[in-house]
């Protein structure tokens, strides 16, 4: 009955098959581990490169001048290295984006999670995902060539290059992400809680406002913080539509270079490797990295906390 062509376990050991196989499994294990460890290497490399290439800059320019200076003119004859204009423009556009994303995103997420029929959700969720895939340079085109001329008819004093329109477009851009993450959070709120609320006679909107939003609060907050991080780090829309001129202004109708726009501007020009101008890119890049890292870590922990609750 038994087939002699099929080796038994002990024959497999004797023939060296087991040993060979163990070796392959071991090699693959190492390869898989190295691949996973690559992510740590990438993070380390980002931090290392940013520090290494901005180090000479910080050796020359006092940190207080960099952080609190109000003029950013690194390639002028009398260079000034105050990052505030870039930082303010970055935070202003990101803030404008949040002004759009929070009310719209929250309403859409509540609608999708509490009101929409499954069939509607099945259509809208993939559509949102598709929108996430629209290249940012296309959004930049929208901002500069479509939205700005349109809004100039209504907003007096709106310049051709301004912070307002990129801010709005950024808000629309991060909307799909914010909606999908906060909707996931809302849907993760156990149905038992909802049923309890309905049993008390609450209407749908009361359940949404009094049960679902508080229940999903840390998840929703995470969605907005991660959205904010994306807005801060977004580049092309700002490089195209917010201008490349550092400008310390609180007026969103004016143009002003953001951190990312500045990096693009310098990269487009011919910056000599190792020059002070080259180092400024890495100095502001480091600042940008730290800001987004802060948002990402806070967002990560809020999300994880949220997942642990449910």
């Amino acid at each position: 009955m038994t087939n002699s062509a099929i080796p038994t376990g002990s024959e497999l050991i004797k023939s060296g098959f087991v040993k060979r196989r163990r070796m392959i499994a071991g090699i693959m294990r190492v390869f898989l581990f190295l691949s996973a460890a690559l992510s740590i290497f990438v993070t380390t490399a980002i931090v290392y490169i940013l520090l290494r290439d901005s180090w000479p800059f910080f050796m020359q320019i006092p940190l207080t001048d960099f952080l609190f200076g109000t003029m950013w003119t690194p390639v002028f004859a009398d260079p000034q290295f105050g990052v505030l204009p870039l930082l303010l423009a970055t935070l202003q556009t990101a803030g404008l984006a949040m002004l759009i994303a929070i009310p719209f995103g929250l309403t859409m997420a509540i609608y999708l999670s509490e009101y929409a029929k499954p069939a509607v959700r099945e259509v809208i969720k993939p559509a949102l995902e598709m929108l996430e895939a629209v290249p940012t340079v296309v959004y930049g085109y929208f901002a500069l060539l479509v939205m700005t001329p349109f809004l100039q008819q209504f907003v007096p004093g709106l310049k051709g290059i301004n912070l307002l329109v990129p801010g709005i477009i950024l808000g629309i851009m991060i909307l799909p992400y914010v909606v999908s993450v906060s909707e996931d959070a809302m849907r993760a709120v156990p149905n038992g809680l909802r049923e309890g609320a309905y049993a008390l006679g609450m209407a749908k909107w009361q359940v949404a406002v009094k049960v679902v939003i508080p229940g999903a609060f840390s998840g929703i907050t995470a969605a907005f913080i991660l959205g904010m991080s994306r807005a801060v780090g977004e580049t092309m829309v700002l490089a195209i539509a917010a201008g490349q001129n550092p400008n310390l202004t609180w007026d969103p109708r004016e143009g002003a270079a953001t951190i990312t726009a500045y990096i693009v501007q310098m990269s487009l020009g011919d910056v000599a490797h190792g020059s002070l101008a080259y180092q400024t890119i890495f100095a502001v890049g480091l600042l940008l990295f730290l800001i987004t890292l802060f948002f990402n870590v806070v967002g990560f922990y809020l999300r994880r906390k949220f997942r642990e609750v449910y």
Binding site: S39, T43, R230, G233, T235, V264, G285, F289, T292, N296
Partner: peptide, 8 residues
């Protein structure tokens, strides 16, 4: 890493 801006 998923949240690091692409320009970085």
């Amino acid at each position: 890493l998923a949240g690091v801006p692409s320009i970085i």
